[in-house]
Amino acid sequence: MAMNNPSAGPPDDMDDREGGKERLPCGRDLAQVWQQWEEGQTDSHSRSCPHCTAALEDLDGLKHVVRQAREEEPEYEDANVLVERVMDVVQLELRPGRTLPLGTTEDDDWIVEAAAAKAFRAAADSLPGVRAGSCRIAPLNAPSGPRRRVRGPVAVRIEVVIDMTGDLQEAAERVRQRLLVTAQRALGIEVGSVDVAIVDVLDSGGHGERPGRWR
């Protein structure tokens, strides 16, 4: 590129500075020349001007090397080592959450919300065409405050995505019943209410349309 003192380059501590335009010998602003080319715009000047052409060749040469570099990149398909390292740390971290009552009012058994939620999500997932997302469980009649241990029935709110294969209300009811059975038989937790929020409906091709919060 026809430019004086090529090795000096623009100082790199002027990142957000306006101005400092670099003009080619033909008078055009280099940044503009490159930008127009990048946007697929050329004019008769830039097509015929040797300075503009040389500047574009330089940029094209750089892009060519970038393409080569990309082709040489290894594929990072195997994330096993990363997964292991991340999960080793994650599993050591305790997530404080609500503690919920198990059994009857006379018992002193408890379960953390995350564990109960996991069981409820798995129960919902076991229904055909249902995928569970968020699942929150809280004492039904309790003053707010996550750390307070209160006995008594709990309220469950679960969000699901459902395949559009039939009646949505029926599908929500199936989820509700499955959760109640799980609560009673598998967990031993007294459930006062189950809210099922259908957050998405998938057609048979797996494409969704969000119905809003339908209950």
Binding site: P6, G9, P10, D12, L30, Q35, D58, L62, V65
Partner: peptide
């Protein structure tokens, strides 16, 4: 732009 400027020079 400034990165391109320096890299084209170097190349």
């Amino acid at each position: 732009f400034r990165a391109r400027r320096q890299l084209t020079e170097a190349m």
